[in-house]
Design a protein around this nucleic acid. Structure first.
Lengths: 239, 239
DNA sequence: AAATAGATTTCGTCC
DNA sequence: GGACGAAGTCTATTT
């Protein structure tokens, strides 16, 4: 079986340009290994001197520049950009632009070690589990995971401060706000919960007050202090 | 000039395995275009059915699986993982593991369109400007950007709620906390600033109170309301 | 190793 | 298109 691949090792600049350009036009994923410099200007600005890197262009307008280290690209352009190949003497430059925000990325290759264009088509969708949404489903199916007598009444209930993960009432009929996190939480999540409780308090002008419960595998010390200060509660629950 | 590249188009499974394995051992960046399935289990869990994708392995233990769309990989493994190549009948699998947290990724190739191993060495460091740190420098050099008479006294000043971006005092000698953001801010940043002001208030037991100023290009409506509620201020400043 | 917050965060969803 | 919050976020810094 032969795939839709065009590739060349140690190509001339002209050959590299041709494969990149043809690949981009044909909707392929194009990759280049080579020595390059990178200039970026947009939300921020950066320069990157000469070095060996891996550059990938996707048909949706994404550009990724990877070094030999790290999960994240050292430079990139998000989906929706338009690519252009510009040839100079002994170099070729991949230029990528977008508007809103105005951003520009230029990768100039002094030499190319390898270039390839491959027709990537992915019919499958990722099936992911263990997310915050899954945690919510588990609580709705078994509300006593929070506490005996807890009754969920709504998810994503709107308040002036934003949507509450789970809204319900406890055994005594008192309003309860749940903020769910799939991992250990810090002070930020407490702030979020506090804002919701405050907003809902006002919204309901409840005489009995509104309980706020942070649901997560664990909390940091500082977060625990903040919870105590604000009269908020914590329920440990693994994702 | 010849680079340290090994590459093959439409290789046999055995050839592909050989190039990947040799590349990994030699500390190269290895890329594979091909039809594969991906299984992940760790902090969450996922499965991805057969499809054409681009897989990159870095010598630092990173794995990235890219489809034809999006900035982010559809599956990945962060730096620090250990790779292993396992061969079965007509397929080969790249397995990547790490501890703490325990995570496992397996990419099984049914067919390989192209494989390449390239010695990537990047001597340069990225020079980036327009970050929050740059914004802080600008304020320290020209404090009147905040308001006439503002005097910075410390950066990263520690409080029980965390480190404050900029701490100083105003024309009247009143304590001021700045929270800097390089982009338009929402409610979260207001919560952050509120926590700092509250903590510093307590820390200083100041009679005159502590002013909190959010410094950002702009704020959302909800954030503006929250600022007003809590008696906090806003200064517009572009990054 | 844990905690905390930034990031050119990206991404999805809802208004 | 903006707003808001999740993410298997990752990454750097500090304790």
């Amino acid at each position: 079986m032969t795939s839709d691949v065009r590739a060349r090792t140690d190509p001339s600049i002209e050959t590299a340009r041709s494969i990149v350009e043809t690949g981009l036009e044909g909707g392929a994923v194009v990759t280049v290994f080579g020595e390059c410099t990178v200039e970026y200007d947009g939300r921020a600005a950066s320069t990157l001197g000469p070095g060996d890197r891996h550059v990938m262009c996707k048909p949706d307008g994404t550009v990724l520049v990877h070094t030999d280290e790290g999960h994240q690209p050292v430079n990139w352009q998000p989906p929706g950009c338009t690519h252009e190949v510009v040839v100079a003497e002994d170099t070729f430059t991949l230029e990528s632009r977008r508007d809103n925000p105005d951003e520009f990325l230029a990768v100039t290759f002094e030499s190319v070690g390898h270039v390839a264009a491959f027709d990537v088509t992915d019919p499958e969708e990722l099936s992911l589990s263990g997310t915050e949404e899954d945690l919510r489903q588990r609580i709705l199916e078994n509300p006593s995971l929070i506490e005996p007598g807890f009754t969920p009444l709504a998810t994503e209930r709107e308040t002036p401060a934003g949507a509450v993960d789970v809204y319900g009432e406890d055994d005594d009929g008192q309003a309860v706000v749940l903020e769910l996190k799939r991992r250990r939480v810090g002070p930020d999540a407490v702030g979020q919960l506090a804002r919701y409780v405050e907003a809902l308090q006002r919204d309901l002008h409840a005489e009995t007050g509104v309980r706020g419960i942070l649901v997560a595998p664990s909390v940091t010390d500082r977060a625990r202090s903040l919870l105590a200060e604000r009269g908020l509660e914590f329920v440990a629950l693994e994702p």
